[in-house]
């Protein structure tokens, strides 16, 4: 981050306190990664809550809509159960729900003074945020793995096997990053826990329902289809679902570069990476402005 003096070298000096061995970028990332993981473990409530809602969705949707939706789903992807269809969507939902808490953590840090405290340390500021985000991504990956496991127990099938599971987790992580950035941006702008939670949560359901998450686009009204085409959730779900069923089921972008599953995965991933970079850039510039304060 472009704060004055944040990244200059740490050459030896006669004023260096004797109790220091110095900081490294990787070391600073690790220190922050550890703190945020510790906080997550201390707050099992947050972990559980961000898993509970997706699990309820997974169980209720498959049980209640399974028979009805199964028909619609089968028209697009023959021989698929609704469980198998739904698991990639719930994986994306987990990523979305967990990413919201990232901004909440930042607001808490600002409120309890840790944000400023960290700014006064010699830690590299970019490393500080990389460490925090890494801890959140780690948590999201674990939660998605749990959801896939639960889905398999309920009868879903990952056609691509273990590689596919890793792939779906990776897609979920890529998907989560833009929302992590978004919730941090909200946090810096509002500096208020409730506004951050409400702001991010309000978006969660429209994003999920106005996408290919729960039903194939063809089964949805025109206006929803139109929205779904520009909705990041559609890209994340379609990429994850392609991996799940080992077919190109990307509904929005039609390519045939690889001739198979990757035609469904690569375009979705490309869109997500672009979105991550865009919103990541916005969040980084907001954070950097917040770090270097409001001075002429």
């Amino acid at each position: 981050m472009s704060t004055p003096g944040a990244d200059e070298g740490t050459t030896a000096s006669s004023r260096r306190p004797e109790g220091r061995s110095g900081n490294t970028f990787v070391g600073d990332v690790w220190v922050n990664f550890k703190r945020w993981n510790l906080k997550a473990v201390r707050n099992p409530f947050v972990l559980v809550v961000s898993l509970v809602q997706p699990i309820i969705f997974l169980v209720l949707f498959t049980e209640v809509f399974g028979n009805v939706a199964g028909g619609a789903v089968n028209q697009g992807i023959p021989g698929i159960t609704y469980e198998t269809y739904l698991v990639p969507a719930i994986a994306i939902q987990v990523a979305l729900a967990a990413a919201i808490t990232s901004g909440v953590g930042l607001v808490n840090d600002i409120e309890n003074g840790m944000f400023e405290k960290v700014l006064v340390t010699p830690m590299n500021r970019t490393a500080v945020f990389v460490g925090k985000t890494a801890a959140e991504v780690f948590r999201i990956a674990v939660q998605i793995a749990i959801i896939i496991g639960l889905g398999v127990v309920l009868g879903a099938k990952v056609v691509t096997g273990a590689v596919g599971v890793v792939g779906i987790v990776a897609v979920g992580v890529l998907f989560s990053l833009w929302f992590v950035a978004f919730s941090n941006a909200l946090a810096v702008l509002t500096r208020d826990q409730e506004s951050t939670i409400i702001g991010a949560n309000l978006l969660q359901f429209p994003l999920l329902f106005l996408s290919s998450a729960f039903l194939p686009l063809e089964a949805l009204p025109e206006w929803i289809q139109a929205f779904a085409r520009v909705n990041p959730v559609t890209y994340g779900v379609d990429a994850a679902r392609s991996l799940m069923v080992d077919q190109d089921v990307m509904t929005v972008i039609d390519v045939s570069w690889f001739g198979g599953t990757l035609d469904g995965v690569v375009p979705g991933v490309a869109v997500l990476v672009g979105l991550d970079l865009l919103l990541g850039g916005v969040a980084v510039s907001l954070l950097s402005r917040a770090s270097s304060s409001d001075v002429k």
Binding site: E8, R16, M114
Partner: peptide, 19 residues
């Protein structure tokens, strides 16, 4: 030389700052 200052000072803010 902000980084060198940060290495060589302790700072206790007005608002209690702990996790």
């Amino acid at each position: 030389e902000a980084r060198k200052i940060r290495e060589s000072i302790g700072y206790m803010a007005q608002e209690t700052s702990i996790d």
